[in-house]
Nucleic acid binder design. Sequence first.
DNA 1: TTCGTTGCAAACATTTTGCAGTTTC
DNA 2: GAAACTGCAAAATGTTTGCAACGAA
Lengths: 136, 136
Amino acid sequence: MALVKRYSKKREAILEVIQGTDIHPSAEWVYQRLKPEYPDLSLGTVYRNLTAFRQEGIIGSVGVICGQERFDRMVAPHTHFFCRGCGRVEDLFEVDNGEAVAQQAAEKFGLYIEQTRLTFEGLCEDCLQSEKKKLS
Amino acid sequence: MALVKRYSKKREAILEVIQGTDIHPSAEWVYQRLKPEYPDLSLGTVYRNLTAFRQEGIIGSVGVICGQERFDRMVAPHTHFFCRGCGRVEDLFEVDNGEAVAQQAAEKFGLYIEQTRLTFEGLCEDCLQSEKKKLS
DNA sequence: TTCGTTGCAAACATTTTGCAGTTTC
DNA sequence: GAAACTGCAAAATGTTTGCAACGAA
């Protein structure tokens, strides 16, 4: 572990990519996005920095979706929707995210809850239409 | 894909293992559990059957936790708690699991929601005590 | 000069898959 | 006998890590 943090242009760029999109990217996506501008960027560096950001609480994580961890520019808890058709992960704001329930559960079962994750899976409007067409 | 399903002793045993525990096992755990009784059991067979069970809706999945998919004997939606101390995954019954919220969100955003997953992460009572001791 | 950061490639862990032999029906 | 099922081992996938070179303070 690093005791003192030093500046790094690539680290800054990685953070900017995460914070500049709401698609909840994977490490690979961040890497592909930066590769043109930083031809000598390494995938390992992306992983190392994303993991550090997550541990420091600078970015969030939606969890593993289709085998890849998906990161989140938003740290504040909110609900997510994953479309199994197009693979999109959307934020669902103005929707309860289980925080209150967590509070209750913590008291009821004597748990110390640090994080709550509410995720819906299904089909977005577009993919639902496509699916209907295929079946008819 | 198999068009007609045939009987298999090992498949039956794999299902029994899942249905006989509430620890939400990984494929590896099921494999280790059955290996003594079925020395020629293959990990591939465990994966193949668990995946099929999940797709058929015979068993559930809690998602990927610490790099491994954890399966669930219960198909009906319910809330889970993952303790990052001991790795345990517990069912939290009698706790709202976001179904009602999913209904609302589906209407509001025009989504077709097939599955909702509410998971809390933190420390169970035991691990909280241990952590406190370590820090003092 | 120190030590944090990176590229690279190898290592790792989990899961999937191709194929030949076995089992069910 | 046809087709599903399995063991085995190799492959595929996503992620981590060791190390020497590089770069910031």
